[in-house]
Design a protein around this nucleic acid. Structure first.
Length: 215
DNA sequence: ACCCAGGTGGCCC
DNA sequence: GGGCCACATGGG
């Protein structure tokens, strides 16, 4: 798996790169699109917004996610409970700008059903431990590794490192050559870093900011 | 007129 | 475990 460096070298490299990114881009909590996802603490409404955005952002430019979110907001539907009470047709039309709108409307509904009716509300989530919550999320149709971890890390402040396309490119650019399964890459970062959700949140945000600029 | 974007699931081998 | 495809809109 590791082509160019030993595990120890990779650990040190991951920690050094974090410092480099922080020095280069500043704290992501302060500004831009990541300011909100890295904001802490978050209110219940803000957590729901992150959950909704985690679905809308699948394979989609953030700009288009913002348009869809703005439309939901205008109709006072930026809430899991309200999404559950609204016809799929209406949700579909509002989120069209984010693409894959029929799938995503279904996925939003599934997630809303889980958090509101199965869990019993967003505030009850704290009673579920991280492995259990991750497992439950992955059972929901339309929620894969990345979406589950987005929700765990950015909505519920659980220390799981998010792996996405940018993380893969970042790893390839700085330490690996190939063979990047989700679990392997996630373990790589989690074993190298202090187990702290704040670091995981900021690091992932910085990776995206860095890799967008690189392209 | 292409080509791509913070993924996921289904189907195949 | 990996390769390929559908899903859909907006912007380069």
């Amino acid at each position: 798996m590791v082509e160019d460096f030993s595990d120890n070298q990779i650990k040190r490299r991951i920690n050094r790169l974090y410092g480099d990114l922080l020095a280069k881009h500043g704290n992501p909590t302060n500004s831009g699109q990541w300011g909100f996802w890295c904001k802490r603490p978050k209110s219940a409404e803000e957590k729901e917004k992150v959950i909704i955005e985690s679905i809308l952002t699948q394979r989609t430019k953030w700009k288009n996610v913002e348009i869809a979110v703005e439309k939901l907001q205008q109709h006072d539907l930026l809430s899991l409970e309200k999404i559950l009470l609204t016809s799929a047709k209406i949700i579909e039309n509002l989120i069209k700008p984010a693409g894959f709108y029929m799938q995503k409307a279904t996925r939003l509904r599934s997630l809303a059903h889980f958090f509101i009716e199965v869990v019993g509300g967003i505030e009850k989530v704290e009673m579920i431990d991280t492995p259990e919550l991750r497992k439950k999320l992955l059972q929901i149709n339309g929620v894969g590794n990345e979406t589950a971890d987005d929700i765990l890390l950015y909505a519920f402040e659980r220390p799981v490192f998010v792996v996405d396309e940018y993380t893969r490119r970042f790893a390839i650019r700085h330490m690996l050559s190939k063979k990047l399964t989700y679990d392997y890459l996630q373990q790589l970062f989690e074993k190298a870093l202090k187990k702290d959700y704040k670091i995981y949140q900021d690091y992932h945000a910085l990776i995206v900011i860095e890799m967008k600029g690189e392209k």
